[in-house]
Design a protein around this nucleic acid. Structure first.
Lengths: 208, 208
DNA sequence: GCAAAAATGGACAGACCTGTCTACTCAATC
DNA sequence: GATTGAGTAGACAGGTCTGTCCATTTTTGC
C-alpha cells in the first residue's frame, strides 16, 4: 500500500535500505542458497534485521515474498545478460555471448544454478512460482530466437529452442556437478549448432 | 535385518505385495508427483495402506525412504533405457535412441521430468539425495561417452558431455514447459552434434 | 515540536510434521 | 495348539512452521 507505484526502487542512495529491500535481499540469499521450502520466515527476518510484522505488512504472505524474490531474479538476470551482450558487435557474437555471460556468473561464489528450476521443483502446479517461471522462460526463449534471427539463421525458432535446451542443461550441470565449466561446454556446443544452422540447405521445411 | 541380502526383491508373484514394496510404490508416486519435502509420512502410509510403524521398522527414517526411492528410480530408468536400446543395430542409432527412449517416457501420463533434478533442488549439500544424484549422473554420462566411442567419434568425452547437457535440458523443458516434444527436439539436436563430431578435423586437440 | 505513520519485539494460536510407543491382530511354522 | 514375528491402528511427544496481534518505540512530514 505504502509502496511506491513502481513496486521496487532503491532507497535515496546512501541511506539505510528500506525494510522491503532488506527482506528481498535476505530472501534472495537464503531462498537461492537453501531452497524456498527449507528456509523459514524466521531465518529471513533474522538475516534482514526486520520484525516479522514488517514482512507481513509489506508482502502479506510467504508466497508473495517468494513471488517477489523470483520477479527480482528475473529482472536481475535479464539486465545482467543484456548489459553483458552490449560489448559485442555482431549478432553471432551476441548469441554465443549469452553463454559467456552465464559462464561469468557461474564463477561467482555460491552459484547454485537456475533459481527457477529450483523453485519450480518445490512448487505445486498452478502456483505463482510456476507463473514466474513461465515468464522467465518466455524471456529466455525470445532472446535466443531474436538473436538467431538477427544472425541470419533460416529457422530461428528451431535454433532458439535448441539453445534453450543447452541453457537449461548447463544450469543443471553447474549445480549438480558443481562444475562452473558447464557454460563453456554449452557455448562450444552452441557454436556447432549455429554453424550447422547457417549452412543448412536453403529450402527445406525442417520437418519435425 | 529381516530384509534379504539383495535389499529388494519382488514378492512370490501373485501374492499381495509386501509392506516394503507398497511403501516404495507409494513413495514413487507421491514424491515424484509432488516433491520430497511437500509429501509427508502420513500421506505415504495412507496411500500404501500400511501402518506407520511398518515404515519405520522397514526404512528407519524418512530420509532412508527417500534414498530408497531414488535408488529405485535409478534402477528403473537405466533398465528402461537399456531395454529400449536393444532394438537398434548400430551404435549411432543407439546413441540417438536414448532420446527416443526419453521421448516415449515423456509421453506417459503424469511425467514430471527428472526425479533427481527435482529431489536435488530440495536437498541440502552433502545429503544422501546428492549422493544418489551423483550416481545417476555418472551412469548417464558413461552411457553417452561409451555410445559415442562405439560410434567412432574422435573425442567421445566431449560429445558425451554435450549430449548430457541436452539430456538435462529436455528433462527441464518437459517439466517446466509441459511439452513432451522436448525429447524430440533434443534428439534432432543430438544428431547435428553427432554428425559434426564425426566429420571433425582428424588431428586437433579439441582445446577446451 | 508534534502528530501520524511505520517499524519493532515478542508472545501466541493453530496447523503440521517426524518419530516413538503400546496394545492388538493375524498367519505361518514347529 | 503354542510360539513367533510381521503388520496394524492410533495416541502422543516434541518440534517447526506460518501468520496474528498488541503495546511500544522510532521515524517522518509538516
Amino acid at each position: 500500500m505504502a509502496a511506491d507505484s513502481a513496486g521496487r526502487r532503491e532507497a535515496p542512495t546512501g541511506a539505510k535500505p528500506s525494510a522491503r529491500e532488506r527482506l528481498l535481499s535476505a530472501a534472495d540469499e537464503l531462498f537461492y542458497a537453501e531452497g524456498v521450502q527449507t528456509v523459514g520466515i524466521d531465518r529471513i527476518i533474522e538475516r534482514a534485521g526486520v520484525a516479522k510484522a514488517s514482512l507481513y505488512n509489506t508482502f502479506g504472505s510467504k508466497d508473495e515474498l517468494v513471488h517477489a524474490y523470483l520477479r527480482a531474479r528475473h529482472a536481475g538476470t535479464s539486465a545482467r545478460i543484456l548489459a553483458f551482450l552490449e560489448r559485442y558487435e555482431t549478432p553471432r557474437a551476441r548469441l554465443l555471448g549469452v553463454f559467456d555471460a552465464q559462464s561469468e556468473a557461474f564463477k561467482g561464489p555460491g552459484h547454485r544454478g537456475c533459481a527457477f528450476i529450483a523453485a519450480s521443483a518445490e512448487a505445486e502446479a498452478g502456483s505463482s512460482t510456476e507463473q514466474a517461471s513461465n515468464d522467465y522462460r518466455v524471456w529466455v526463449r525470445t532472446l535466443f530466437t531474436d538473436l538467431a534471427r538477427q544472425a541470419g539463421v533460416p529457422d530461428p525458432q528451431t535454433l532458439g529452442r535448441r539453445l534453450h535446451l543447452l541453457y537449461d542443461g548447463c544450469a543443471v550441470s553447474v549445480r549438480m556437478d558443481a562444475d562452473p565449466e558447464a557454460a563453456a561446454a554449452a557455448r562450444a556446443t552452441a557454436e556447432v549448432l549455429l554453424d550447422a544452422a547457417l549452412s543448412a540447405p536453403p529450402e527445406r521445411a525442417t520437418a519435425d
